[in-house]
């Protein structure tokens, strides 16, 4: 009797391609991919989506999401997405970028796409390290964090402080929504999905630029187990990168 009534209550989103990812065990990219995929399915955006991928571990996102995509040079995804959106304004356009891509080499592109209020959505995965290239210092690397290019730990005096992107983005005129979530716990993952949904809605209802930062674990380059990595997000990252919504004008009826 019970077997007949059994319902599948959690499964892979339709839009996620059924294949193993290249990510390391415990890497949070897979969670971020799934949240994006769930929303594209739930909001029925898949057939209308033009995705802009970036450079870094997530360069292969186009192998995992069953949507049309263009691959941008390192850091340039917001510019490429601007071109895509201006060319096909009726489509849903988003970028998916890591912290090296977005906050270092692509700082100009993200700032100006946001400031112009491009009707695009940006998924920003911050794991405080360059993953693909082997764990070098990123603009978001925490003070004292050891990487392959700051083996003694990031030094504030000579290497500057980790950049809080969401706060900067929230301060720009063209931005409709800016929030920071985290992928380290079930509760935070649920909230992160709400942030993403809000950002996506800012595009679908024409409000403006939506930005969501996702604090993520990189056990391999942090030289930790996945469980230790999740603890680090709680203990070290969230205190420096506070979670929450930093800007949301969607409630006020939007910008022109």
């Amino acid at each position: 009797m019970s077997e007949i009534n059994e319902k599948l209550v959690f499964d892979k989103p339709e839009i996620i391609i059924d294949r193993a990812t290249h990510y390391c065990p415990g890497c949070h990219h897979g969670i971020a991919h799934r949240l994006v995929g769930e929303l594209l399915d739930e909001m029925e955006l898949g057939g209308n989506t033009l995705m802009t991928t970036s450079i870094g571990c997530s360069v292969f996102l186009y192998n995992y999401l069953n949507v049309d995509a263009v691959e941008a040079p390192h850091g340039r995804a917001p510019a490429v997405a601007t071109g895509v959106k201006r060319a096909r304004p009726d489509h849903f356009v988003f970028t998916y970028q890591g912290d090296g891509d977005l906050a270092s080499i692509g700082m100009a592109e993200i700032m100006h796409a946001a400031n112009r209020g491009e009707k695009i959505s940006v998924v920003f995965v911050n794991n405080t390290v360059y993953g693909m290239t082997g764990g070098q210092m990123a603009p978001t690397t925490l003070i004292g964090q050891k990487t392959t290019t700051c083996p003694n730990g990031r030094c504030e005096t000579t290497q500057g402080s980790p950049i809080r992107m969401t706060e900067i983005i929230a301060s720009l005129g063209g931005v409709a929504y800016a929030a920071r979530g985290s992928l380290d716990s079930v509760k935070n993952i649920r909230t992160a999905k709400k942030h993403l949904k809000k950002a996506f809605e800012c595009q679908t209802n024409g409000t403006g630029f939506g930005f969501v930062e996702l604090l993520s674990g990189c056990p391999t380059n942090w030289k930790m187990t996945p469980l230790q990595a999740n603890e680090r997000i709680q203990n070290d990252m969230i205190p420096y990168f506070p979670l929450g919504v930093f800007k949301d004008i969607s409630e006020d009826g939007g910008i022109c």
Partner: peptide, 11 residues
């Protein structure tokens, strides 16, 4: 929800 590899189905 926390599985990074979408490897778990729930019934």
């Amino acid at each position: 929800l926390i599985c990074p590899d979408v490897a778990i189905k729930v019934y």
